[in-house]
Simulated assay, not measured.
Amino acid sequence: MNNFKVERKEAFRIIGFKTALTDGTSIHSPHFSSQKTAFFKSMIDNGQMATLRALAENPYGYAAVTKDQETVFYYSGVQSSQPLPDHAGEVWFPESEYLILSGSGGLSRLAFDQLEDQAFETLLTDTFEWEYSGGPVAEILLNGNPADAEVEVWVPVLKRK
């Protein structure tokens, strides 16, 4: 399992459209996978992703998983400092240490799910020197090909006390 590292990242912003995820109360739940896929497909079908691509500052596709009170939200979008399009939202990622997990091959959703499972179920346990900080989690599609994906998942972490 040497597909991960902890690295400091500069602050960045994702703009995108969001949906509330159901049947889970933590930032990571296996129940979210099909909901994320359906939402992402709907954004492509209705042209929202094309609108966001014009505002992107790099070629990567981004998603963010956030929690507000008891509701978990999924944003699909791009990294950008441009003004928000109508009905779009934003997620700010603070400068922080991030657990960065990398994967490739196969469908992007499956790769993201496997990396998030690894982060939350295998690595971020009481024996790991880092713990989840509670901030938003980023999913990044590096190669633009969701059918044969190269992906990263960034989980904000703090040094365990």
Rank of each mutant, 00 (worst) to 15 (best):
Q35Y: 01
Q35G: 15
Q35D: 11
Q35C: 05
K36L: 09
K36C: 14
K36A: 12
T37L: 12
T37R: 01
T37S: 09
T37N: 03
T37Y: 11
A38N: 15
A38F: 11
A38I: 09
A38E: 09
F39L: 08
F39K: 12
F39M: 07
F39D: 13
F40K: 14
F40A: 05
F40D: 15
F40I: 03
F40V: 13
F40S: 05
K41C: 09
K41R: 15
K41P: 00
K41Q: 12
K41I: 05
S42V: 08
S42Q: 12
S42C: 04
S42T: 13
S42G: 07
S42L: 12
M43H: 15
I44R: 03
I44D: 01
I44H: 02
I44L: 06
I44T: 13
I44N: 00
I44K: 01
I44E: 00
D45M: 07
D45F: 05
D45R: 08
D45W: 00
N46I: 12
N46A: 08
N46V: 13
N46H: 10
N46D: 12
N46E: 15
G47V: 06
G47L: 07
G47S: 09
G47H: 03
G47W: 13
G47T: 10
Q48H: 09
Q48M: 10
Q48S: 12
Q48K: 08
Q48P: 02
M49G: 08
M49K: 11
M49P: 00
A50L: 02
A50Q: 02
T51F: 02
T51W: 14
T51R: 13
T51D: 03
T51N: 05
T51Q: 14
L52G: 08
L52S: 09
L52A: 05
R53G: 04
R53E: 11
R53K: 13
R53Y: 04
A54E: 13
A54K: 10
A54L: 08
A54F: 01
A54T: 06
A54W: 08
A54P: 05
L55A: 11
L55D: 00
L55N: 13
A56E: 04
A56C: 01
A56D: 02
A56T: 05
A56V: 00
A56R: 06
E57A: 08
E57G: 14
E57Q: 07
E57C: 12
E57M: 14
E57Y: 03
N58T: 02
P59A: 06
P59E: 07
P59K: 10
Y60G: 04
Y60H: 08
Y60K: 14
Y60E: 00
Y60D: 03
Y60Q: 14
G61L: 11
G61A: 13
G61E: 04
G61W: 00
Y62S: 05
Y62T: 05
Y62N: 08
Y62E: 06
Y62V: 01
A63E: 11
A63T: 14
A63M: 09
A64R: 01
A64H: 15
A64E: 07
A64V: 07
V65G: 11
V65D: 10
V65R: 02
V65S: 15
V65A: 08
V65K: 01
V65Y: 00
T66E: 12
T66L: 01
T66N: 12
K67N: 11
K67S: 06
D68T: 07
D68F: 14
D68L: 14
